[in-house]
Simulated assay, not measured.
Amino acid sequence: MTSAGLKLDVYLGESMRVAGALAGDAVIECFARHRLEVAALYRGIEGFGLGRRIHTERFADISTDLPLLAEAIDTRDRIEGVLADLDAILDRGLVTLEPSRLSVGDDVHSADFPSGIGAAGRLTIYCGRGAHSGGRASYRAVVELLRREGAGGATVLLGVDGIHDGARRRAGLLSRNVDVPMAIIAVGAPEVLRRVLAGLPAILERPVANLERIAMVKHDGAMREPLPMIEDADEHPPFWMAIRVYTRQGAHADGGAVYTTLTRRLRRAGAAGVTTLRGELGFSSDERPLRDRIATLTGRAPTYTVWVDRPRKVAELWPIVDECTVRHGVVTAAFVPAYRERAGARQSGALTVRDPGDVMREYRARALPIPPPGVA
């Protein structure tokens, strides 16, 4: 099965509670009630939102509310069917929707990327932690395939809760956690990622893949394509943009880790919010992926940072991203046509789902003729 889909992302805090339950648990339970194709809950290592306070795992006194990212993928109709329940659950946190193409099973071998801004693709592949192929972990085999075929980067995110093969799967201290979902996120040229898709049925028994069109703006300091930008009118609902930075934990900028320097500089400059996750395995340069524990000890564990904001703010603060990634990392951009953030009585945006064709027509009509400052 291959069909038009939506990617639903929910950014929240680890200590948030709703109706006596942890908010992350309530969100995944909501996804499970709606029997979504795939969903995962990831624990972050650093970030901030509307409250402006940075939460990080590096300091014990402020690490009690690490960021969480809950992600769900399914067809447009099924994702839209979740929104009312999700809206009733969450009175805080950020929710975004992005258009995609969902492909499941043997159909992944012929799936193609939807139209959209940018010349690159973003491919997310879901599997269980314990899935094996040819005597090795399937996620390792997928990462090796991505590197061999020439993908620009790949990051494996380990879920702590989620939906896989039609059932909810939660990680536990005394469990092998073999069915808890994990995601392999890859970026690169569509023709490269199409070759990877063709090889997935030989690795995964029932592959689930999400395909998105993006702009890969930078790779290891080199500009690959212009940052896409749109005239930021005050229409309702407004457009938003997602800037994603894939790097490694040991990569540095301005005396600190890239993700830490980027988070703090964007916060000081008034960015809407930033979340960073640490991956289990991956690459974003020519380095060979290391085993998970060795990668963490040597600073080569991958990190994945997401910043979502209005286009005018992205244009204003782009020099910060440009400076922090002058030597290392993959930087991508995509429009976010639906965004809603709450913090108590404060709310920004709305979850109005736009047709991808309408988004592209608006972009063609309102694209800025020159890139914003800082872009060559």
Rank of each mutant, 00 (worst) to 15 (best):
A4I: 04
E225L: 06
I230Y: 03
S284Y: 10
M216R: 09
L66P: 02
G5H: 12
V306F: 06
F335Q: 03
E212A: 13
A19P: 05
A88I: 04
M223Q: 10
E98M: 15
Y246H: 14
A215T: 04
A338M: 08
V156S: 09
E80M: 05
D232H: 11
V192I: 12
H219C: 13
G150S: 04
D165Y: 14
G270Y: 12
E57P: 04
I214H: 05
A367P: 12
P369V: 03
L351T: 02
F113G: 01
I243V: 13
W318K: 03
L227N: 01
I243G: 07
E80V: 03
H132W: 05
H55A: 08
L36I: 15
A167F: 08
T96M: 03
S103Q: 08
Y259Q: 09
I163G: 08
L351W: 04
I185L: 15
L204T: 00
E191H: 07
S15A: 10
R169I: 02
A209R: 04
G159N: 10
R170G: 11
E71C: 12
A222T: 11
R213I: 11
A215R: 00
A186N: 01
D358V: 06
H34E: 14
P237A: 00
V321K: 09
V314M: 09
R361A: 14
P369Y: 11
R366T: 07
T303E: 11
S133P: 06
E235P: 02
T296Y: 10
P356G: 01
Y259C: 14
E316C: 14
P228I: 05
G250I: 03
R168D: 01
A338H: 10
V27P: 03
A60I: 09
H55Y: 10
P226I: 07
R52C: 14
V95T: 05
A171Y: 09
D106V: 15
M182D: 07
A301G: 05
L22S: 04
L123Y: 03
A376Q: 15
M229I: 12
G116R: 10
L368S: 04
A26Q: 07
A257C: 11
T155E: 02
S63Q: 08
A88Y: 05
E29C: 04
V336P: 00
G49N: 06
D286V: 05
L123G: 01
R147V: 02
V353D: 04
I230V: 06
V336F: 01
A72N: 11
A334M: 06
G188T: 02
G105K: 07
E46R: 05
Y304T: 11
N210I: 04
A343T: 03
Y304R: 00
S15L: 10
I294T: 12
L290I: 06
P181G: 01
L351H: 03
I125E: 06
G329M: 08
A376G: 15
